[in-house]
Nucleic acid binder design. Structure first.
Lengths: 168, 168
DNA sequence: GCCTATAAATAAGC
DNA sequence: GCTTATTTATAGGC
C-alpha cells in the first residue's frame, strides 16, 4: 500500500481541476462564441489565468467595477454613469447579503449531513421522524437552493446594460 | 418530433455550460482554498461573472489599479437612463426581499429550537396540511426562497433593454 | 425547472 | 502522465 500524502493529492486535485476549468472555458468560447476569462489564485498565493481571446482583453471589457472610478466623460455627458455606478454598489451590497444567506444554508446542510451520518446531533430525538426516503430529498433540495443562491449575484450582473462595445 | 431551433438549443448550452463553469470554480475554491474569478461575455455582448470570494476582490489582484484604463463610453453607446433607473429600483427591491427571507429563516430557526426542546419536529404539528409525500414545511420554505429568487431574476431580465445584437 | 442517456471529468493508484 | 472506477456535466426533450 502506498501512503497518501494529503498535501500531494490536494495539489494534484488543484492543478487537475484548474486545467478542467480552463478546458470548460475554452469549450464555452468555441461552442457559443463567448469570451471567457478565468483568474485563479492558489491557496499558496500563486496566480494563474486563462482567457479566450485573452485575459486582459476580457477583463478590460468588464470595467467599470464597483470601487473603481467611473469612466471619464465629457462635461455634458453626466448622469448615466452615476446611475450605473450606484447600481454596481447596490449589486455589491446585495451580493454580500446573498453570501450571508448562502452561509446559513451551508450551515443547515452540514447539520443535515451530520444527522444523517451519526444521528446524534441537535435533532437527534427527531431524526427518525424524517424517514429514510425523505432525508435524501431534503438534502438535495438544500443543494439546489445553494446553487440557485450562488448564481443570483451573476443574474444581477447579467441584468446590467451590455457593455460599450467595439469589437465582437 | 420537435423541431429544434439552432439558436434556442445554443442558448441552452450557453447557460448550462456557464453554470457548469461556475460550479467548477466554486468546487475549486472549496476543495483547494483557491480564489477563482470567472468573467464571461456572451456572443450577444452581455456580461456574466462569478467569483469566490468575489469577482472584484480577485480581479483587483490581477489588474493594475484602474485609474488608467477606464473603459471608454462612446457617446452613442450609452444605454437608456430609464432602463438603468428601473434596474436600480429592482435591485433595491431585491435587497428588501433578501432581508425578508432572512427574517423568515430566523423565524424557522426559532421553531426548530422549540421543536428540539419538545423532542419533536416543528412541522409535525402541521402534518395534516402537508399532504401525500410532499416535502415538510421547512423544505417548502427553502423552495419558496428559491422561487422568489427566480422570479426576481425574471423580473430583472424582462425589464432589460434588448441586447445590442439580434438573437431574441 | 426535471429527467435520461451519454460523454467527460476526476480521484486514486502506479 | 497513464489507467480505471466512479462521479459529474451535458444535450436533448419535456
Amino acid at each position: 500500500m502506498r501512503r497518501i500524502e494529503k498535501e500531494e493529492s490536494r495539489q494534484v486535485t488543484f492543478s487537475k481541476r484548474r486545467n478542467g476549468i480552463y478546458k470548460k472555458a475554452s469549450e464555452l468560447s468555441m461552442l457559443c462564441g463567448a469570451h471567457v476569462a478565468v483568474v485563479v489564485f492558489s491557496s499558496a498565493g500563486r496566480a494563474y489565468a486563462f482567457g479566450d481571446p485573452s485575459v486582459d482583453y476580457i477583463l478590460h471589457q468588464y470595467l467599470p467595477l464597483p470601487g473603481k472610478d467611473a469612466p471619464v466623460l465629457d462635461d455634458n455627458a453626466v448622469s448615466e454613469p452615476e446611475a450605473v455606478a450606484a447600481m454596481w454598489r447596490a449589486v455589491e451590497e446585495t451580493k454580500a447579503q446573498v453570501a450571508a444567506e448562502r452561509a446559513r444554508m451551508d450551515a443547515i446542510a452540514v447539520k443535515v449531513a451530520q444527522a444523517k451520518a451519526g444521528r446524534r446531533f441537535w435533532w437527534e430525538a427527531d431524526i427518525e421522524a424524517l424517514g429514510e426516503a425523505e432525508l435524501p430529498e431534503f438534502t438535495r433540495a438544500l443543494e439546489r437552493l445553494k446553487d440557485n443562491i450562488r448564481r443570483r449575484a451573476d443574474t444581477l450582473l447579467s441584468a446590467l446594460p451590455p457593455p460599450p462595445r467595439r469589437l465582437r
